[in-house]
Design a protein around this nucleic acid. Structure first.
Ligand SMILES: [Mn+2]
Ligand SMILES: [Mn+2]
Ligand SMILES: [Mn+2]
Ligand SMILES: [Mn+2]
Lengths: 216, 216
DNA sequence: TAAAAAATTTAGATTAATCTAAAAATATGA
DNA sequence: TCATATTTTTAGATTAATCTAAATTTTTTA
């Protein structure tokens, strides 16, 4: 099988590929907190294993074999996050680092049984879709709160920024997954917004509104 | 912290120490399926970290820091095995290898919450005691079935051989943890035994009786 | 379109964990 | 007790993942 490190590279390339077709060496180095030279070495290795398409200086993309591996890691990551929150009562801002370790446990049987044990959840605690056994998943059609107009309504369904700081801020302001919100007002100077949830009015900055996603 | 490999060495030394005070290089190599030369290298490293007492050619023992680490790995191993069997419906012969991976997940918080989630079990699926947060545990006072006399009774409470083959054999013959048995007869020629469980009579070899443990 | 800048790769080391083969220390037993 | 066997350590390589510094390629822009 693949090493822990190879799996992290594939996952990083997968996530970076959602922005651009082809992914650069420096981008990968930044995500994995390593150096470009190290990335080049690993890219050669992954190319030898036919997990990525790689040509010198041309950036990389996953092969379908590589994508399959990446999706299985992401499946495990999100299922474990769900387990930690739903069964072990972790907060949603506490689970990522532990899931980064758990996602590398190989046993297919374990993941599939865990999935069944939890009733085959479709989304993780941050609103991200959980790929099924076949790697299939349906992402919500989401847009940032910052793109909403006054009086528009929506249900909070995901975040763009997964940092503990942002998640804790959302927790504190009660802007959590599943909450129904309505845009009460938009400040035309700094684009900050007043959101209405039930009887509460919450003032959020443009930056926060940009990282909070809603389904309509 | 310690690497995956260092943890496996400490655990191996801990288990081997139950037989003899001081543990030899070759014994460790055999358990870890590696070579004596590799073990010597690692022993130097563990000694530098003050996790073992080591003098060239004299064998090793754990320091109390090393024992603490070993017990935390064993705690995790056994708690995960319990989880796999009790919550995910694995069979008792299927859990060891997965637990060998899970035991290296670092998060203290995870283990302690898992422990609580399961109601703080005292024994794993094979009857082995689970150390608590402080590393404390109480082993059953067990003896092999082979040491029983005719008409003696006892409750199956552990195994000496953890191999899948032996566990499957026990499963098939219904000689599982918690079963009450009585020695109906002992064959004086080959020391095989007839065990009575409820209305069933089971013939077990001397070897099997030796690896099955009872509490009285 | 040719410098300059940025991105990427190569060269050469390093560290951890492993190996084989040979040397050294310890244990055994005639 | 001393030769032989066993155990353990050392010496010297190898492989994976990483690094820094230098070279190369591609991209940008003046
Ligand atoms: Mn995460
Ligand atoms: Mn998540
Ligand atoms: Mn086990
Ligand atoms: Mn066990």
């Amino acid at each position: 099988m693949n090493t822990f490190t190879e799996e992290n590279y594939l996952k990083a390339i997968y996530h970076l590929s959602s922005k651009t077709e082809s992914v650069g060496t420096n981008e990968i180095a930044a995500v994995l907190k390593t150096k470009a030279a190290s990335v080049t070495d690993m890219l050669k290795k992954l190319a030898d294993k036919k997990l990525i398409n790689y040509a010198r200086y041309q950036g990389v993309s996953l092969t379908s074999a590589g994508e399959k591996v990446a999706l299985s890691i992401i499946r495990k990551h999100r299922l474990w996050e769900y387990f930690l929150v739903e069964k072990l009562n972790f907060k949603w801002d506490e689970v990522h680092d532990v899931a980064e370790e758990l996602e590398h446990i190989a046993s297919r049987e374990l993941v599939d049984r865990l999935d069944d044990f939890m009733g085959n959840p479709k989304y993780d605690p941050h609103g991200d879709p959980i790929p099924d056994k076949q790697g299939k998943f349906k992402a919500h059609e989401l847009k940032p709160v910052s793109a909403m107009n006054v009086d528009q309504e929506g249900v909070i369904s995901g975040v763009r920024d997964h940092s503990a700081a942002f998640l804790q801020y959302l927790e504190k302001t009660k802007l959590t997954i599943g909450k129904k919100i309505k845009v009460a007002d938009i400040n035309s100077y700094d684009h900050s917004m007043i959101l209405q949830t039930g009887d509460k009015r919450i003032h959020v900055s443009r930056e926060a509104a940009n990282n909070l996603l809603i389904a309509q």
